[in-house]
Design a protein around this nucleic acid. Structure first.
Length: 137
DNA sequence: CGGTTGACAGCGT
DNA sequence: TACGCTGCCAACC
């Protein structure tokens, strides 16, 4: 994981042609891949609220799995847009992805700054700050 | 071309 | 109530 090695092999059809997403662009064939869908949805998360991978997966479509959301968020750092990945946590309310942030504490800091109480990498009052895109959106 | 991993979730035991 | 296995799709080796 996290081996930013440029795929020089098959390169999946044409290269990215210097598009936004570098190597993480899935298939690169068509835009509107679930990556962008996840980014767009995450960007719509109101400040002070958080959502779960499952909620995003369901909101995007029934076929997507929560794991893919993780991969998508993985590319969020490479995305041109600033994706508030800190607002995306697992159904446990735990900052499972904090380790992937520039600094393990960055995620918690951001959440706390938004008014979310985080204790021991776990969002307190999670049910209260939870934002379901399928219902709210 | 095939097997394994991954920021998960849901159901079964 | 707690722990374990399977399922999902895509990328990496």
């Amino acid at each position: 994981m996290a081996s930013p090695k440029k795929k020089n092999k098959s390169a999946t059809t044409k290269s990215n042609s210097g598009t936004k997403l570098k190597q993480l662009d899935p298939s690169g064939k068509n835009s509107a891949s679930f990556f962008e869908q996840v980014y767009d949805l995450v960007e719509q998360i109101p400040k002070g609220r958080v959502t779960t991978y499952g909620a995003i997966a369901r909101s995007l479509g029934s076929g997507l799995s929560a794991r893919m959301v993780g991969w998508a968020l993985n590319g969020s750092f490479l995305s041109d847009r600033n994706i508030p990945a800190q607002r995306v946590v697992n159904r446990n309310g735990q900052l499972s992805g904090k380790a992937h942030f520039p600094t393990p504490t960055r995620m918690q800091e951001l959440l706390e700054k938004e008014g979310i109480t985080v204790l021991n990498d776990t969002i307190q009052n999670f049910s209260n700050v939870f934002w379901d895109p399928a219902e709210e959106l």
